[in-house]
Simulated scan of single mutants.
Amino acid sequence: MQEEPEVVVLRLGHRPGRDERMTTHVGLTARALGADKLVLEDVASGRKETVTDITDRFGGPFEVEVTDEVMGRIRSWDGPIVHLTMYGEPVQKVEDEIRAAHREGALLVVVGAEKIPFEVYEHADFNVGVTNQPHSEIAALAVFLDRLFEGRELDREWEDADQVVVPQEAGKKVVDPDELDNPSEL
């Protein structure tokens, strides 16, 4: 997030025909809740266009990268690695330690799609669960990022947006930022 060391979300795994929406929503959640970058496996490269389109329309900065070496990325990461898994330590018990590690440098957050190789558990500095009950990787990422940023991501300012959502009690309102009389109404 702005003015802090980078947070990179790595989507590990993608089952074509099954995970398109899930992988897209991992990217949109990462972007909306404070991450700086999404790394996708090459098999999920089609999701890059969707997330990039949202970033172009609603503002950034946010970057999407496609690689054929996701495990190599994990092995060579120079900084703390958080693996989100329902089998991990409760987020509320390790969030302070993770925040401290993040202040020292970039953080890699691994979000799986299918069975995760045991090597990921071994490389991770933190195997973190937001609950030990079955849930989605999107929910895990959202809860984790909110805990990491302590809610600051909810007030983030977006650069170069072509569209903004105007909060209101009922209905939907999306406008060009230049149409706003008072930008503080957001």
Rank of each mutant, 00 (worst) to 15 (best):
V110Y: 10
E63S: 04
M22K: 15
M86L: 15
P117K: 15
L145T: 09
G88Q: 01
V66K: 14
A106D: 06
L40Y: 09
V7G: 00
V8F: 04
D178P: 01
H123L: 10
V165A: 11
V166A: 07
V43S: 04
N182E: 13
V8T: 15
H123P: 04
G34K: 12
T131A: 02
E65R: 14
E169Q: 09
G17N: 12
G34V: 07
V9Y: 10
I81W: 03
R156N: 11
L10T: 12
A30I: 12
G112R: 14
Y87F: 07
P177S: 03
N182H: 13
K172G: 05
A101E: 01
D96K: 15
T29F: 02
E4Q: 08
K172I: 10
V165K: 13
G46Q: 08
G105N: 13
D78W: 08
K37R: 15
D96A: 11
G105H: 13
R103A: 06
A124R: 11
S76Q: 12
E122F: 08
I81G: 01
V111R: 07
V143D: 02
V43I: 13
F118T: 15
Y121M: 08
D181G: 04
E20R: 08
G88T: 00
F126W: 08
G151C: 07
K93L: 14
R31Y: 05
D176E: 05
L186Q: 06
D68S: 15
V82Q: 09
G151D: 06
V109F: 01
A106Q: 06
I98A: 01
L40Q: 10
E69Q: 06
L145H: 08
L28K: 08
I54Y: 05
V165R: 08
E153R: 14
T24D: 02
T131R: 11
R47E: 07
S136K: 13
G59S: 04
P183F: 15
E3G: 00
K173G: 02
D56R: 14
L28W: 00
L10H: 11
L186I: 14
W158Q: 04
P167S: 14
R99P: 03
E153S: 07
D56Q: 07
D42I: 06
E6M: 13
V174D: 04
Y121P: 01
E114K: 13
D19W: 03
G79V: 07
D78Q: 15
T29R: 12
V164P: 00
S184N: 07
V82P: 00
R21N: 03
L154W: 14
A106Y: 07
V64C: 01
P5I: 13
A35N: 09
E49K: 14
F149I: 05
A170H: 14
V143T: 11
E153T: 09
A170T: 13
E114Q: 14
L28N: 01
P61D: 11
T23E: 00
D146N: 14
P5Q: 09
G151S: 04
R31K: 10
V7S: 06
G72I: 07
D53C: 07
G171D: 06
T55E: 03
D42E: 03
G13P: 00
F126Q: 05
W77S: 09
E159H: 13
T85S: 08
V66P: 01
M22V: 10
K93P: 05
E6T: 15
E119A: 12
V8K: 08
G17I: 12
K173T: 09
D146E: 14
E89P: 00
N182F: 11
P117I: 13
I138P: 02
K115L: 09
D146L: 13
A170R: 15
